[in-house]
Amino acid sequence: MDLPVYTKQQLALRNGQDKPQIWVAYKGLIYDMTESRLWRNGKHYEHWAGQDLTDELPDAPHTDAVFEKFTPIAMLG
Rank of each mutant, 00 (worst) to 15 (best):
M1S: 15
M1Y: 14
D2W: 12
D2E: 14
D2G: 14
L3D: 06
L3I: 07
L3A: 08
P4C: 05
T7R: 00
K8W: 05
Q9P: 01
Q10N: 01
A12L: 05
L13M: 09
N15T: 07
N15Y: 03
N15R: 04
N15A: 04
G16C: 09
G16E: 08
K19W: 09
K19H: 13
K19T: 15
P20F: 08
P20N: 09
P20K: 08
I22K: 13
I22M: 06
I22F: 06
I22E: 06
V24H: 01
V24R: 00
K27L: 06
G28I: 00
G28S: 01
L29N: 06
I30S: 00
Y31S: 04
Y31L: 05
D32V: 07
M33G: 08
M33D: 08
T34I: 07
T34W: 05
E35D: 14
E35F: 11
E35R: 13
E35L: 12
S36F: 09
S36C: 12
S36D: 15
L38Q: 14
L38M: 13
W39T: 10
W39S: 12
R40E: 14
N41Y: 14
N41I: 10
G42P: 12
K43N: 14
H44K: 10
H44E: 10
Y45F: 15
H47A: 14
H47Y: 15
A49Y: 10
A49V: 12
A49T: 12
G50S: 03
Q51N: 13
D52A: 01
D52M: 01
L53H: 04
T54L: 02
T54R: 03
T54Y: 01
T54W: 03
D55I: 11
E56H: 13
L57S: 04
L57Y: 05
L57N: 04
P58A: 08
P58G: 08
P58C: 09
D59V: 09
D59L: 14
A60H: 11
P61T: 02
P61H: 03
H62E: 05
H62M: 05
H62V: 07
T63C: 06
D64W: 06
A65D: 15
A65K: 14
V66E: 07
V66R: 07
V66Y: 09
F67H: 05
E68H: 12
E68K: 12
F70E: 07
F70M: 08
F70W: 09
T71C: 08
T71F: 10
T71W: 09
P72W: 04
P72I: 02
I73P: 04
M75Q: 14
L76K: 00
L76G: 01
